[in-house]
Structures are given as C-alpha cells and as structure tokens.
Computed example of a mutant assay.
Amino acid sequence: MTQNRDNSTRTKARKRALDILYESELRDRPGTDTLAERIGLGEPPVRPFTIELVNGVLEHLDELDAAIAAALTGTWTVDRLAHVDRNLARIALYEIAHTDTPPAVAISEAVGLAAEYSTPESPSFLNGVLSAAAQRLAVATPGDSQQT
C-alpha cells in the first residue's frame, strides 16, 4: 500500500510539474516565475518533488532538448513537438539523467501522462523518443547517470 501511495504522490508531482512548465511556455514567461507564483498561492500545495522537477528541467534545458533532438527522426524538431509532449519528455529525461528514478519508470510515467493529456498518437511517439533518448544518455554518461 505504501508503494502505491508513493507512486501516486510522485505521479501527482509530475503532473503538477507538467502544468507549471506547460503554462510557462504558453504564457511565454520564465518557468521560475510560474513556479514561484504557484508556491506562493499554496493551494494546492506544490510538492517538493514538483519543485525538484521544474527546477531540474529549467537548469538542464539545453542538455534535455539536445537529447530529445538527437532521438527525433525525419523532419521532427523539439520546437515542432506539442507543448505537452515536449515538457513530458523533458521531465522524463531529467529524471533519467539526474535522479534515481529508473528509466523504465520515468518513461512509463511520461507515456501515461501523455495518454491522459495529449493526442492519441502521443503515447507511442513519446515512448519511442524517450527510449532512444534514454539509450543515448546512458551511452553518453556511463556510470554518471545519477549526477545531480
């Protein structure tokens, strides 16, 4: 029961991080401003894991976008991705590269959120992009994937 509650709590934190990053893009404002605003409102409270995810994505944005871009095929670019998909990919890759979240869990969570909040094609597309990007990250940083 504790494991399911923890997963639910982390899933909610990921969803809130997605909301904050998505809103920041749509409003064309810094993610740190949106995060600070949400923390200040306090309702609902912003979980520590949400704060870690948002700040981590913002701090490592260039690295994350480069990993996504390298995993895209054809004429796809990071900017061409739907806002939801792009931010889910960033969150998942941040978790893979900079936390102790197993890659399969980070990818599964992102795909699940894509199924809930994006297009019908997004889950399988995101799964492929994240799987390729995670493999590239593992090759690029052997033994150093837990760096914070």
Rank of each mutant, 00 (worst) to 15 (best):
A97T: 02
E52L: 00
L113G: 07
I68F: 04
P48N: 12
L81A: 07
N127K: 13
I91R: 00
A89R: 04
T77Y: 11
S108A: 15
T119Y: 10
G74C: 09
G143H: 06
A67E: 14
T32S: 11
G112W: 05
V78N: 11
E63V: 06
A70L: 07
E25Q: 11
R14E: 03
D65E: 14
N55S: 02
R10Y: 10
T75Y: 11
L41V: 07
G42D: 05
N4C: 13
M1Q: 15
N7Q: 10
A104I: 03
E109S: 13
L72P: 02
E23Y: 05
L113M: 03
P142I: 05
S145A: 03
E121F: 10
N127W: 15
L81P: 09
I39L: 11
T99S: 00
A140Q: 08
L35Q: 15
L130F: 13
S108G: 08
L64G: 00
E95W: 01
S124N: 09
R5W: 04
L53P: 02
T101N: 04
H60S: 06
N55A: 04
A70Y: 01
V111M: 08
M1D: 14
T32I: 13
G112F: 08
Q146C: 04
S131F: 03
T75I: 12
T73D: 09
G74P: 13
T50L: 00
R5M: 12
L58D: 00
R47M: 09
Y22W: 12
A133R: 04
D28R: 05
R90W: 01
T141N: 07
L130T: 05
L26P: 12
R14D: 07
R136G: 10
L35E: 01
H60Q: 06
L64R: 02
A92H: 13
E116R: 15
P45Y: 04
A36L: 14
A140S: 14
P44R: 13
Y94D: 02
T77I: 06
V105H: 02
A110N: 01
S124P: 07
T11I: 03
E52R: 00
F49Y: 03
P142K: 10
L64S: 01
A89G: 06
R10K: 10
L72R: 07
A13L: 12
D6S: 13
P142C: 10
E25F: 08
A114K: 11
G74S: 15
D6R: 10
G143V: 11
L64K: 02
V54C: 03
L35Y: 11
D28L: 11
W76M: 15
I96K: 04
A134E: 06
R16Y: 02
G40Q: 15
Q147Y: 01
R29H: 07
A132W: 04
H60C: 04
S124I: 12
S118A: 03
H60N: 09
T73L: 13
R16D: 13
L41I: 11
D85F: 05
I91W: 01
W76A: 14
T99P: 00
S118W: 02
K12Y: 03
E109H: 09
G112R: 09
S122R: 01
A82Q: 09
H60K: 06
L21H: 06
T75C: 08
E63R: 03
T2W: 11
N7Y: 09
A89V: 12
S131Q: 04
